[in-house]
Amino acid sequence: MTVRRAAVSPAPNSSQACLTAMTQASRRKFSLSLLAMSAMAIATAVPAGSALAADNAEPMHIIVGYAPGGAADSLARLYAEQLRQDGHGTVIVENRPGASARLALDYVKRSRPDGKTVFIGPSPLFTIFPLTYKKLSYDADKDLVPAAVLTDVPTVVAAGVQQPYKNMKEYMDWARRNPDKASLGLATIGSAGHLGTVALGKSAGVAITPAAYRGASPMLVDVISGNVSIGWDAVASMMPLYKGGKLQFLGVSGTRRAKALPEVPTMKEQGFSQYDYATSWYGVFVPAGTQPDVLARVEKMFLAASANPSTAAKLEALGLEVVARPGQEARHRIQVERAAWRPIVEATGFVAED
Rank of each mutant, 00 (worst) to 15 (best):
L19G: 08
A53Q: 15
D73M: 07
R297Q: 14
A158F: 00
N227S: 05
A158H: 01
P265V: 07
D173Y: 00
G349E: 13
A317V: 09
G226H: 12
R84A: 15
K243S: 06
A67W: 06
A45M: 14
G254L: 07
S253M: 03
P240Q: 12
A307M: 10
L295I: 06
D222T: 04
K259W: 09
P146E: 05
R112Y: 07
N227D: 10
M1V: 11
P218L: 06
Q162N: 12
L78C: 05
A104S: 13
R84F: 10
L150D: 00
A101N: 11
A216K: 00
L295P: 06
G283C: 03
R5L: 15
G319T: 08
M60I: 15
A11I: 11
V157I: 09
P292E: 10
E337R: 03
S229E: 12
K314D: 08
L220G: 01
S273L: 07
E263K: 10
L75C: 12
D152K: 14
Y213I: 01
S100F: 08
E321R: 08
M219Y: 01
K246C: 07
L186C: 10
A340N: 02
K169G: 02
V8C: 03
T266N: 11
R177F: 02
L295A: 04
M301N: 00
R84L: 13
P68H: 13
L105I: 01
R28E: 06
I62L: 02
D222A: 03
K109Y: 15
K246A: 06
V3W: 12
G115A: 00
V91L: 07
Q162Y: 11
E337A: 07
K166S: 06
E58A: 14
P97H: 12
T348V: 03
A307K: 06
E58P: 07
Q82K: 04
L295Y: 02
H194T: 13
R5I: 14
P146C: 08
S191C: 14
I230Y: 11
V336C: 04
L150Q: 03
R27F: 02
V228K: 11
D106L: 12
A101S: 10
Q162E: 15
K202Y: 09
G193K: 02
A71M: 08
S100I: 12
R297H: 13
I62Y: 01
V252N: 08
G319F: 03
A6S: 06
A148F: 04
M238V: 03
R5Q: 14
Q24W: 10
A140F: 14
S9D: 00
F129R: 12
P12N: 05
V198S: 07
D114A: 03
E58C: 07
E337G: 05
V252M: 15
G160V: 11
E263C: 12
D180V: 09
G69C: 02
S26I: 13
A278R: 02
S15V: 10
S50D: 08
M172D: 02
I230C: 09
M219Q: 01
H88N: 13
E269C: 09
E337Y: 02
N13A: 08
R325S: 13
V46M: 15
R297N: 12
T197N: 14
D173F: 05
A216L: 00
F126D: 02
G244F: 05
S50C: 03
R5H: 07
I344P: 00
R5Y: 09
E269V: 05
L303R: 03
S225C: 10
